[in-house]
């Protein structure tokens, strides 16, 4: 079975994209008039890609992620996830979502927090236990299952929330500034861990961030966005290898990509003034 699946696994470049947006629009009606959160967004994300969305506040990066998750409904254009509408994809458990705040329930242990989606989706108790053990191991929290969230550091809490998003085997992981509230050192460590986790699980990851080094370090594709209206100004396919030690950030290739991202962001800001 497994061999067959591997043998027939088609080349990444020729397969249908996992997430596909075509001239996507989203306009919020507010008291101060319409706000164009997204305007004419075209983007294809292939299976197994690590895509970062970067841009200033109001550029629509989080809104785009929320559209993929069917938490917002676009007002124009088309958006498919695994070939389905975002709503259908959600019901098919296509993605796990990680918010900026870990959002663990204080009245549940780490184990029980990870069990939350599994309970809601109706997994059996033994299946729940097996999955909890597996994802706790993935985020290196195996000894902390019985702890309550307040007994863990901020970085550990965020790892637990990633484990929660991984527990039900969604192929797509959507992360909205998951490490934004953490300090630089913890962030570096979590970035390394996330790359490792991505390599092991082969998930497709959509990652919203404010940080240029973080975006360049993590991604196979960097989407630069700018505000008013929220739109994509540049898409950079990273030439960096899949294996990335932290010191890759000092190589000329890395700095070159970072430079291009910064230029893209600056262009977006010039439009602003």
């Amino acid at each position: 079975m497994l061999d067959q699946a591997e043998a027939s696994a088609p080349d990444r470049s020729t397969t249908k994209p996992v997430i596909s947006a075509k001239s996507l629009d989203l306009t919020f009606q507010t008291n101060d008039g319409p706000v164009h959160a997204l305007s004419g967004v075209d983007l294809d994300i292939g299976k197994g890609e690590f895509v970062s969305f970067i841009g200033p506040s109001g550029c629509g990066k989080t809104t785009f992620l929320r559209c993929i998750a069917a938490l917002e409904t676009p007002t124009g254009g088309t958006l498919t996830v695994n070939g389905m509408s975002p709503d259908e994809a959600r019901r098919a458990r296509a993605y796990g979502y990680v918010f900026q705040a870990a959002g663990l329930y204080p009245w549940r242990t780490i184990e029980k927090n990870i069990a939350l989606p599994l309970e809601i989706m109706g997994y059996s108790k033994s299946e729940q236990d097996a999955r909890i053990e597996r994802v706790l191991d993935l985020v290196e929290l195996s000894n902390f299952g019985k702890k309550y969230p307040w007994q863990l550091s901020g970085g550990m809490q965020q790892r637990a929330s990633i484990a929660r998003a991984l527990a039900f085997d969604a192929d797509i992981l959507l992360m909205d500034e998951p490490f934004g509230a953490l300090d630089e050192i913890v962030r570096d460590h979590l970035n390394e861990q996330l790359l490792d986790l991505w390599a092991r699980t082969e998930k497709t990851i959509g990652f919203v961030t404010h940080s240029i080094p973080e975006a360049v370090y993590l991604s196979t594709k960097i989407v630069v966005m700018s505000p008013r209206p929220g739109r994509i100004t540049d898409v950079i396919d990273s030439p960096l290898p899949k294996e990335r030690p932290l010191d890759i950030r000092d190589t000329p290739e890395f700095l070159q990509i970072a430079h291009r991202v910064r230029e893209g962001l600056r262009a977006g800001h010039a439009y602003d003034d």
């Binding site: 998750a69 959600r90 019901r91 979502y97 918010f99 959002g103 989606p117």
Partner: peptide
Amino acid sequence: AQLDLLKTYS
């Protein structure tokens, strides 16, 4: 965010 999280689980 807490309510959105539950929504993502349908």
